[in-house]
Amino acid sequence: MSIAVPESAPRPPAGGYTWRQDRTVAALTGKNEMERVGAIARSIGQAAVEILAGTRPASQLSRWTEPEVVERFTQRAAMLKLVQEQCPDRRAVFEVHRAARIRRIRVCSPAPGCYEASLVVEESTRARAVALRIERIARQWRVTHLEVG
C-alpha cells in the first residue's frame, strides 16, 4: 500500500527573509545602507573603547579599518597600559573605559559611499565621544578615521 503525498510549494522562511535578496547594491541604498553603517559604527566604537581599556586587542580592528588606525590604537593602548603600571595609586582614573555602553549614534552622509558617524559612549564616571568616517572601498565598508575623545 502506498500513500500519495501532495507536493507543496517551498515555504518562505519565517519573517519573510529571502536569502541574498537584500545583498544587491540597489537594496543597500538609502535607509538600509544607513542602518548598516550605523551598526558598523556601533560595533567599531565599542571595540575602540574596549581596546583603550585593555580588554580587547587592537588587531581586532584590522578587518574593518585602515592599517594606520590599528597602529594608532595599538600605540595608544600600550601607552595607557604603561601609565597604569607606573601610577598604581591612580587606578580609579583608569577604570573609566570599563563597562562602556553606546548611548547614541548619529550618522550622516557628506558624499555618496561615504558616511560620518558620531557616538556618545557612557562610562561609569563620564561620557565620551567617538567619531568615525566610514567609506565604501572596493565593495567593502572601511573605517578610514577613528577618534575617541
Score class of each variant (00 low, 15 high):
residue 8 S to L: 15
residue 8 S to N: 10
residue 9 A to T: 13
residue 9 A to I: 15
residue 9 A to H: 06
residue 9 A to Q: 09
residue 11 R to F: 00
residue 11 R to L: 07
residue 11 R to N: 04
residue 11 R to W: 01
residue 13 P to M: 07
residue 14 A to N: 01
residue 14 A to F: 03
residue 15 G to I: 02
residue 15 G to Q: 04
residue 19 W to S: 08
residue 20 R to K: 03
residue 20 R to Q: 07
residue 22 D to N: 06
residue 22 D to K: 04
residue 24 T to D: 01
residue 24 T to G: 06
residue 27 A to T: 05
residue 28 L to D: 06
residue 31 K to A: 14
residue 31 K to G: 04
residue 32 N to S: 05
residue 32 N to D: 05
residue 33 E to D: 14
residue 34 M to F: 09
residue 34 M to R: 10
residue 36 R to N: 10
residue 36 R to E: 09
residue 37 V to H: 05
residue 38 G to A: 15
residue 40 I to E: 02
residue 40 I to W: 01
residue 43 S to V: 02
residue 45 G to Y: 11
residue 45 G to K: 08
residue 45 G to S: 11
residue 46 Q to V: 12
residue 47 A to F: 07
residue 47 A to C: 14
residue 47 A to H: 14
residue 48 A to E: 09
residue 49 V to D: 10
residue 50 E to G: 07
residue 50 E to C: 11
residue 51 I to M: 07
residue 51 I to T: 10
residue 53 A to T: 00
residue 54 G to Q: 12
residue 55 T to D: 15
residue 56 R to T: 12
residue 56 R to Q: 13
residue 58 A to V: 13
residue 58 A to I: 09
residue 59 S to F: 04
residue 59 S to V: 12
residue 61 L to P: 03
residue 62 S to I: 08
residue 62 S to L: 12
residue 63 R to T: 08
residue 63 R to M: 05
residue 64 W to S: 06
residue 65 T to R: 03
residue 65 T to I: 10
residue 66 E to Y: 02
residue 66 E to A: 07
residue 67 P to E: 08
residue 68 E to A: 15
residue 69 V to L: 03
residue 69 V to P: 00
residue 71 E to L: 14
residue 71 E to K: 14
residue 73 F to D: 04
residue 74 T to S: 14
residue 75 Q to V: 13
residue 75 Q to E: 15
residue 77 A to F: 06
residue 79 M to I: 04
residue 79 M to K: 09
residue 80 L to I: 09
residue 80 L to Q: 11
residue 82 L to N: 10
residue 82 L to V: 02
residue 83 V to Q: 11
residue 83 V to S: 09
residue 83 V to N: 02
residue 84 Q to I: 00
residue 86 Q to H: 15
residue 86 Q to C: 12
residue 86 Q to T: 06
residue 87 C to N: 13
residue 87 C to Q: 14
residue 87 C to K: 10
residue 88 P to L: 10
residue 88 P to G: 05
residue 91 R to A: 08
residue 91 R to F: 10
residue 92 A to Q: 15
residue 93 V to C: 06
residue 96 V to C: 04
residue 97 H to A: 10
residue 98 R to P: 02
residue 99 A to G: 01
residue 100 A to K: 00
residue 100 A to I: 02
residue 101 R to E: 00
residue 102 I to R: 04
residue 102 I to C: 15
residue 103 R to E: 13
residue 103 R to I: 00
residue 103 R to L: 08
residue 104 R to M: 01
residue 106 R to D: 04
residue 108 C to F: 06
residue 108 C to N: 05
residue 109 S to D: 06
residue 109 S to N: 12
residue 109 S to A: 15
residue 110 P to T: 05
residue 111 A to N: 10
residue 112 P to Q: 04
residue 113 G to S: 09
residue 116 E to Y: 00
residue 119 L to K: 06
residue 119 L to G: 03
residue 120 V to N: 08
residue 121 V to F: 02
residue 122 E to W: 03
residue 122 E to D: 11
residue 122 E to N: 04
residue 123 E to G: 14
residue 123 E to L: 07
residue 124 S to R: 15
residue 127 A to C: 12
residue 127 A to K: 11
residue 129 A to D: 12
residue 129 A to H: 05
residue 130 V to R: 03
residue 131 A to I: 01
residue 132 L to W: 03
residue 132 L to Q: 12
residue 132 L to G: 01
residue 133 R to W: 01
residue 134 I to L: 14
residue 136 R to P: 00
residue 137 I to W: 02
residue 140 Q to V: 15
residue 140 Q to T: 14
residue 141 W to D: 13
residue 141 W to V: 06
residue 142 R to I: 07
residue 145 H to T: 15
residue 145 H to W: 10
